[in-house]
């Protein structure tokens, strides 16, 4: 978020060209005092934060009528305390459950959950599949960096088989969840997966998720060079982004490829509701 250094609210709002979704335009959604973010150098969560705000700006949503719920973990910091609207920062794993309660009381609120893979899919995985089963009108954006970043880089249920982490120093012996497919199977009405490299489709998918009148899930593959990359022979932020570029295959293209060609690839696109 180095491009978002505030100069004060007056200048901030007047400066630059306020094209919809531009960096200048999305500054209005941030609390100047909360910037800079606590994210490590090269963390993909800043890109995702920008993507979420660009999606909101592009749709012209009333930010004051949005509630962002987040739990514990690096991604929980994307909205809290940075977004200048209502944010609810809750316990590890429970943001989907808290968001369900808020949405039930005030269905007019646009309720968005932002969390990491540890928060949303590990300790909170039960809430995720049940909210998807109910198809309740929530948008869940999961910043999947395949590791517990905040606690120092331990294995998660989304860490790829064989990947090295602090708790699997010689390689992870357990297979990872395919989160997008898990949520499809649970009954969500909009499910997409992109990486922070695929920024334009990622923004478009967040917009579709925000407009879908049921449970929407966007899995945003994010970079963690600090805890994941440097343990897995890819320590640079750019290298991690390039890895997404090379390893991600669109669903459309995957249909023309053999199983052998698809080995080790990650499918991206809209799995349901595209």
């Amino acid at each position: 978020m180095t491009g978002c250094q505030p100069k004060g609210p007056e200048q901030e709002r007047g400066a630059g060209i306020e094209r919809t979704g531009s960096t200048t335009a999305i500054r209005r959604y941030l609390r100047p005092r909360a910037i800079p973010t606590p994210f490590c150098a090269g963390c993909g969560h800043g890109i995702l934060m920008g993507a979420i705000l660009r999606a909101v700006d592009g749709l012209g949503l009333d930010f004051s009528q949005m509630l962002f719920v987040s739990g514990i973990g690096c991604a929980g910091w994307i909205p809290s305390p940075h977004f200048d609207t209502d944010t609810l920062h809750v316990t590890h794993g429970r943001p989907v459950a808290f968001a369900t309660g808020a949405k039930l009381f005030n269905p007019a609120l646009k309720v968005v959950v932002i969390g990491g893979d540890g928060d949303i899919a590990s300790i909170g995985g039960n809430h995720l599949i049940h909210a998807a089963r109910r198809n309740i009108n929530l948008t869940v954006i999961c910043a999947n960096n395949q590791i517990y970043g905040m606690t120092g880089g331990q294995v998660t249920p989304t860490t790829p088989l064989g990947a090295r982490t602090l708790t699997t120093p010689y390689g992870n012996a357990e297979p990872a969840f395919d989160l997008a497919r898990l949520v499809v199977a649970a009954g969500a009405s909009y499910v997409a997966r992109y990486s922070v490299w695929h920024i334009r489709p990622l923004i478009r998918s967040i917009q579709k998720a925000l407009q879908n009148p049921g449970f929407s899930f966007v899995e945003a593959l994010s970079t963690c060079p600090t805890q994941y990359g440097r343990r897995n022979d890819n320590p640079s932020p750019l290298g991690m982004l390039q890895a997404f570029k090379e390893s991600c295959i669109t669903l459309e293209r995957s249909r023309t490829m053999s199983q052998e060609e698809l080995a080790g690839k990650t499918l991206i696109g809209e799995f349901v509701g595209g």
Partner: peptide
Amino acid sequence: PITPQTAIVQTYSQYVA
């Protein structure tokens, strides 16, 4: 893992590995 306990189990996981 949970801060500030994590140092215990991650150290232990290295012993296991």
